[in-house]
């Protein structure tokens, strides 16, 4: 593949920093009980979605599961709109009606934010079907966790995508645990990527702690799909530093395992690569990190000061306007 601009890599590092600082703030606000419901943090996995974003166009489709804050931020949804959603405010990316697990941003082609494990994988296939139906060369990125691969909907979706040769990349963010159940305790195959073989879909393994590996491998796959629509499966090996959700102390795994992954932190790694290559100074990095922290802090202020959705809106989004539905008068032939 062609070598990307240096500026782009620095920008991507900056995005990873924003995601991490945003999530740290979200964690703090959750503990302060400003955020309700569930809250699943992405800290440790930043290189996955940012690497993927670096490989696609703005108009490509993206859909994911409930650990979705980073995916919206990576697509360009503002930290303000993301934090306001956690606070349940009307300025949130889903008007405060979706919450942490249901982020949507239509303008930026972020199609959610889906909280029933595996249930959105067929939706991703439907989006890819629509691109092929219209003869577009868009690619759909469909993210899910290692917990989703044992759901029936996942298997049906892979078969359908292969059968219809749809332009979709199934991205399994393998962070080794489905909530508290490890892959070895949940999945008959230990190499998740082998699941793709059963559907005659090409499979790839990617190092999810390495931004460049994610970006480069996905770029190659995306190019191949644009040239000739087909599904692909990517197992991205990653790790979440935090528990499954805020209420999970993650006692099912060892400190040693966590430390091992922390030593391989995706932000530290990309920073070191760029610094070594003379593309980033310590001062630049510190300024970016400071900026990310400020943006995250400002988003808390924005969320706090935003309005709640009006009570009058309670029924406003159950059905879309009747305007397009034929009226009684118009229908009586």
């Amino acid at each position: 593949m062609s070598s990307p601009e240096q500026r782009d890599e620095v920008e991507m590092l900056s995005l990873m920093l924003l995601i991490r600082r945003f999530e740290e703030r979200a964690s703090q606000q959750y503990q302060a009980q400003k955020i309700g419901g569930f809250c699943h943090l992405y800290i440790g996995q930043e290189a996955v979605v940012v690497g993927a974003i670096a490989a696609i166009r703005p108009e490509d489709y993206l859909i994911t599961a409930y650990r979705d804050h980073a995916h919206a931020l990576a697509r360009g949804t503002s930290a303000d709109a993301c934090m306001a959603e956690l606070f349940g405010k009307v300025t949130g990316c889903s008007r405060g009606l979706g919450g942490s697990m249901h982020y949507f941003d239509k303008a930026r082609h972020m199609y959610g934010g889906h909280a029933i494990v595996g249930a959105h994988v067929p939706l991703g296939v439907g989006m890819a079907f629509a691109s092929k139906y219209r003869g577009e060369d868009r690619v759909t990125l469909c993210f899910f966790g290692d917990g989703a691969i044992n759901q029936g909907s996942f298997h049906e979706a892979l078969n359908l995508a292969a059968l219809y040769k749809l332009p979709i990349i199934f991205i399994c963010e393998n962070n080794l645990f489905a909530m508290g159940t490890s892959v070895e305790r949940s999945t008959s195959l230990q190499q998740i990527v082998h699941r793709a073989e059963g559907y005659d879909i090409p499979g790839h393994v990617v190092d999810g702690m390495n931004f460049r590996d994610v970006r480069d491998q996905l770029t190659e796959i995306v190019n191949s799909i644009r040239a000739n629509p087909h599904p692909a499966f990517v197992e991205i090996r990653t790790y979440r530093y935090r528990g499954h959700s805020m209420s999970d102390p993650a006692s099912y795994r060892t400190k040693d395992q966590l430390e091992k992954y922390r030593m391989d932190d995706p932000i530290t790694r990309l920073r070191a690569q760029l610094t070594r290559e003379g593309k980033l100074t310590n001062e630049q990095f510190d300024a970016m990190d400071k900026g990310a922290k400020e943006t995250a802090l400002a988003s808390v202020k924005f969320a706090e000061e935003s309005e709640e959705p009006p009570l009058e809106d309670l029924y406003a989004y159950t059905y879309v306007s009747e305007a397009t539905v034929p009226t009684a008068a118009g229908a009586q032939a």
Binding site: P122, G126, F129, N159, L160
Partner: peptide
Amino acid sequence: PQRIIDTPISENGFAGMGVGAAMVGLRP
């Protein structure tokens, strides 16, 4: 065959495909 589409016996799968296609503007 582009518009009249046979599916395998996968109700969850093809119903979900319909929802996804509807999200991006088709009318399944």
